[in-house]
Design a protein around this nucleic acid. Structure first.
Length: 331
DNA sequence: CATCGATGTTGAG
DNA sequence: TCAACCTCGATGG
């Protein structure tokens, strides 16, 4: 579900509410019992997002590494940050934040489900997963922590905040060298490496490869954090033919791609939404935002008219994923 | 209520 | 190249 921006937001929740606190770790589902035992009771010392992966460090030197994959999700409850405060570039947190619901009062069994769509724009009420909320309402709403619902792989708990992880692709306890090894395999992340070195690294890699740019953008070793939505939208925003080999692109174009990714990622972290249409008129933008399915330039818009030229958007399968683009504007 | 598909990655063949 | 992983919202009957 999440692309890079969601993972940064989740890491921010951990930095704000778990780092510096002793954490009770368990695996209600049982499948991660041994791993949880290794960090149970330790103080969390750091929370970092790199691309789509998150690393939580504990006082005994061990790290919990989580990759949500396509199904995974964290649900926060208790004392959580419910606004859209931006995380600063190094994973340090912004200073202003209003607290979310503490121990939920009757009628608001809201779990803060962190994915891109979970917050509407700044100040708007948090959307919750109805199914879970209902069950919590019927269940032990008055209690904290809430009873785990469904297959909770890991539960992390301070005295005020509860985080439940379900359905991750990866969930491991790692030693520092192993964390470094994972990070070393990932390409640059604009929020982790805000300097020009990251842009240079991305640019050099792309300019070297015969691979189509649409595949390079999805390659986490080339650039970390881009997924299928941002890929399609970045290519459209650049009016780039997705099949252009990386090495055939002008250097300035590659650098512009990087800068646009950094911009979209920052906006995504701030708002919790994949905002990719900042060029539209207000009327067109409001119309597009009204519908979840209509939020993007090309993503998931097969056959619909291009917002710029009216040509039907094309979808093709490449690298096992669906690629959307305008055959005219991105010729 | 059943089925499908998804903002992802891994590993088998 | 494709199934598996494992979850849930959207869709269709």
């Amino acid at each position: 579900m999440p692309e890079g921006h969601s993972v940064h937001r989740i890491a921010r929740q951990f930095a704000l509410h778990f780092v510096g606190h002793p954490v009770a770790a368990s695996s209600p589902q049982g499948r991660f019992a041994a791993g949880a035992a290794q960090i149970d009771g330790q103080v969390m010392t750091q929370a970092i997002a790199v691309g789509k992966q998150m690393f939580l460090e504990f006082d005994n030197g061990l790290w919990l590494r989580v990759h949500l994959g396509i199904y995974g999700a964290w649900d926060f409850s208790g004392d959580i940050t419910a606004d859209a405060t931006i995380a600063s570039s190094n994973g340090r947190m912004g200073q202003t934040n209003q607290k979310g619901t503490v121990v939920p009062p009757a009628g608001s069994g809201r779990a803060a489900h962190e994915f891109e769509d979970s917050l509407s724009s700044i100040g708007a009420p948090r959307r919750t997963r109805l199914r879970m909320a209902e069950q919590e309402v019927e269940g032990t709403l008055e209690s904290f922590p809430p009873p785990p619902i469904g297959a909770v792989r890991v539960r992390l708990l301070t005295d005020a905040t509860c985080a439940d992880l379900r359905g991750p692709t990866a969930c491991d306890i790692l030693h520092p060298e192993e964390v470094q090894a994972v990070i070393d395999k990932l390409g640059p992340d604009p929020l982790l490496d805000p300097g020009k070195a990251a842009e240079d690294r991305f640019t050099a890699t792309v300019l070297k490869k015969p691979t189509p740019i649409c595949l390079l953008l999805m390659d986490q070793s080339v650039v970390a954090g881009i997924g299928n939505v941002y890929r399609a939208e970045l290519l459209f925003r650049a009016r780039l033919n997705p099949h252009t080999p990386g090495r055939d692109l002008p250097e300035a174009t590659v650098r512009a791609l990087w800068k646009d990714w950094a911009k979209l990622l920052t906006i995504g972290v701030e708002t919790g939404q994949m905002m990719t249409m900042d060029g539209l008129s207000k009327e067109a933008y409001d119309g597009a935002m009204a519908s979840r399915a209509d939020r993007h330039w090309v993503y998931h818009r097969t056959g619909e008219p291009c917002r710029v030229c009216g040509t039907p958007i094309v979808m093709e399968e490449i690298g096992g994923r669906k690629l959307y683009y305008c055959p005219k504007d991105q010729a």
